[in-house]
Design a protein around this nucleic acid. Structure first.
Lengths: 190, 190, 190, 190
DNA sequence: TATGAATGAGCATTCATTCAT
DNA sequence: AATGAATGAATGCTCATTCAT
């Protein structure tokens, strides 16, 4: 009998390799051969798991979404600034993910598949946060959207100017944006 | 005298054609031939004005920055929500510019040239806004950064899900984020 | 005793699967994986019976030759028009075989192996027919070659334009070509 | 001003190079790079004249058809055996064209484009011949089809076994097939 | 024997860049 | 200055073949 492989696990591994490759060279510059090399296989092997490069890149985006979601997915009740700030690009690892994340923003408007993945991600994260805010504010959905936009805005800036935006500065900016909202949530909770 | 061509004007025209082409097909998919066609010339002509494709794409980014800056550059004193909201992707034209703007975010981390253009733009816009806020708040720079981050966060969301984010919804989200800050500015002004 | 597989039978089965695959997709487009699937095995299994793809395709050609030979191989004495016409591409099955047969014509000039198989087939069929004509005409070999050429000529046309050449039209054309020759044979017989 | 080239002439030259390459290596084995080299250009240049390889190969088939048609196109009235025999693969040049011609037979059933080219060629040649036979026989169309089938049958055999079928032997076989028909034509003419 | 995962060479295609005109 | 034909390197994809299990 031949070597049995877990297809799903293999796909995840390849998608992760793709994330690394994209973070290293950029979404436009990433080569199938780079991804294969990072995964320790050859390009031909990829064909067993993805019909083409686009499919692999889509899987890489889903991988990033999954990771970002896992990070912010289950906040405390109510969420604290520190918690929210931890989802910003404040570590080498999360900076890498943000770089990839931003790369897809530029491509999503031209790809139905990528657009869907993005929309689903925002739906999931917004739902998770807004459920968390239930009863703490008049419009939890709007509050969740505001939190997400604030994180995106700060994270974008920090990803584009990593040197100028160390962890503390990002946190401070996020605080400026969200302090009133967080205060309201705590008020209602009490 | 030989026929004089206004080099600078020509460069602007080509950069604008590039912006259109990028907005139409995406930064990764844009071909030099597409840009040339949109500009009404052939690819060979581009060589007289830009050493290579990257230089043309950089000029296209500068063109977008210039346009975005012109829009938000000189706000009232203090800025109003409507004014700030007008720089969001709320018209076909500005949606187009945001699409291009986002596309560069994914590429900037891998290009020194693009990174510089981005940094310069943020510096300019932040300076313009913070000067405008002088005396209205304790930390004008921080307030300006917050306004920019809020706009970026909302604009990103609206660019990725254009159907779901009509003008009014964008404005409402921006209000949720910036209302306390704007209130403070007005308070101080009074 | 270990499981015994009839190698020769297996080879025939694989060659038949190859014939089907070639008839379906064309000789140039046929994939080893297609043939394997049609035979109900995997590509690896083929390696046990054929050293490489070319060998399998050669076996497929031999299979077709064998079938064509069986059809026209033992004609009456003298052969009738109906008999000869039955070897034309007049049924779905024989149209399929003709399609494969024609496919090899284009490749034979570049493959010693295929050329030999072709030559052997023509030798066999020509011998069978000419022996059949012994004593009925001055030059049985020439008459046999003429019959074969007529069938090839009509069959080619009918294979390339299947819609335009139903059974009856093929028979009529073959009659136009061979009627004088057949008449002579019958005359001599009498 | 740039060098001006005659597109149509260029296409013909590339198609001719393709014919040579196909005759040399076979339709399945022909590489775009081979054709380009034979034409004295690089593969990239081909892209200016043909959208893809298939289009170039189709043009090569048309080139062969044109040449074959030119050879037999305007026969005497009535056609003589020598004339008809001259369209058989009796010279190095025509053997080459027949090799290419046969190669397409195997592919035509799987390509609508090639099928159409084939059908058109047969229509043209059959019409040319049958018009030539007008008044000489009861059914000129049928006679023309018979002549074509005879030539195809003999030419096929001679292409597959070039050594065994020198010019004279081909002529003799064609005579065996067509002598009665040609005799009838001459009778009617008289 | 058979499986099927993986290899890796091969090739069509794309496209920025060059350059003769 | 502009043209546009041609280059040629780059790369995604295919698929026959291999081989550990």
């Amino acid at each position: 009998m031949p070597k049995i492989v877990d297809h799903e696990e293999r796909r995840r591994a390849l998608a992760s390799a793709a994330v690394d490759a994209i973070a290293a060279d950029g979404l436009d510059e990433v080569k199938l051969a780079d991804i294969a090399r990072k995964a320790g296989v050859t390009t031909g092997a990829i064909a067993h798991y993805f019909p083409d490069k686009d499919a692999l890149l889509a899987a890489a985006l889903e991988e990033v979404c999954t990771r970002l979601l896992a990070k912010i997915g289950v906040p405390d009740n109510p969420p604290t600034l520190d918690e929210l700030a931890s989802s910003l690009p404040v570590t080498p690892q999360s900076r890498k993910e943000w770089r990839v994340w931003l790369a897809y923003w530029g491509r999503a408007p031209f790809s139905e598949k990528l657009r869907q993945i993005h929309a689903q991600y925002y739906l999931d994260i917004e739902t998770a946060i807004s459920e968390d805010l239930e009863g703490m504010t008049e419009n939890p959905r709007q509050a969740a959207a505001a939190i997400i936009a604030a994180i995106d805005g700060v994270g974008t800036r920090a990803t584009l100017e990593p040197e100028a935006w160390p962890k503390e500065r990002q946190r401070a900016l996020l605080k400026t944006l969200l302090a009133p909202l967080l205060a309201e949530l705590n008020r209602e909770t009490a």
